[in-house]
Amino acid sequence: MIRILRYTEYLYLAVAVVSIYKIITLWSVAQQETYIFIFFAVVSIAMFLFRRRYRKRFEQRQKDNQQ
């Protein structure tokens, strides 16, 4: 279960990296289209941080229950 949570964290980071790449490549060509990618990048980074915090709490709770 914890492995799955860790993979989803990095999936959000991958989405953020792709979105940032698209922002950089489209900024000078079509600035209006980049706003959706800015939104995706911000949400992806926020979800990465949220999921990481949730996973660490989950791991700590499991560790405390085993002791």
Score class of each variant (00 low, 15 high):
N65Q: 09
I38L: 06
T25H: 03
I23H: 00
D64A: 12
E9R: 09
Y7W: 14
Y35P: 05
F37I: 04
A16N: 03
I4L: 11
I36G: 00
Q32W: 11
Y12N: 13
I2Q: 12
F39V: 02
R6D: 07
Q32N: 10
A14L: 13
S28H: 09
V15Q: 03
V43L: 04
I2L: 11
I4C: 06
R61D: 11
Q67N: 12
Y21Q: 09
S28Q: 11
Q31S: 13
V17E: 00
V15Y: 10
L13V: 06
I23Y: 00
L11P: 01
I4A: 08
A30I: 14
R3A: 08
I24R: 02
I38S: 01
Y12T: 08
R61S: 10
V18Q: 07
I24W: 01
Y7T: 15
R57V: 15
Y12D: 13
I24L: 05
R3T: 14
R51H: 09
R51W: 06
R6F: 03
T25A: 05
Q60E: 13
E59P: 01
Y10Q: 04
V29I: 14
A30L: 11
S28G: 07
N65K: 08
M47N: 11
F50Y: 10
V15M: 09
Y12V: 04
F50N: 03
K56M: 13
F37S: 02
S44L: 12
Y35L: 10
V43F: 03
M47I: 15
L26A: 03
V15S: 02
Y10D: 02
L26I: 07
V18Y: 06
R53M: 14
V18A: 12
L49W: 03
Y12M: 11
E59T: 09
N65P: 03
I36E: 01
N65A: 04
I20Y: 12
I38D: 00
Q32M: 10
R57F: 15
F50D: 04
T34L: 06
Q31E: 11
E33C: 00
Q31W: 15
Q66K: 06
A16I: 15
R57Q: 11
F39L: 10
K22D: 00
L11C: 08
Y10M: 07
F48S: 07
R52E: 07
R51Y: 07
V15E: 03
F37R: 01
T25G: 02
E59S: 01
R3Q: 13
R52D: 05
R53I: 15
Q60H: 08
E59M: 04
Y35E: 04
I2E: 15
R52V: 15
Y21A: 12
Q31I: 15
R57S: 12
R52W: 12
Q62E: 09
I23W: 00
A16W: 04
Y54D: 07
L11G: 03
F58Y: 12
K63M: 06
S19G: 05
Y10N: 05
Q32T: 12
I38E: 02
L13A: 08
L11W: 05
D64L: 15
I2R: 05
R55M: 12
D64R: 08
F48E: 06
M1W: 07
F50C: 03
N65R: 07
R3K: 13
T25M: 10
A41L: 08
S19W: 01
Y54V: 06
F50T: 13
M47W: 06
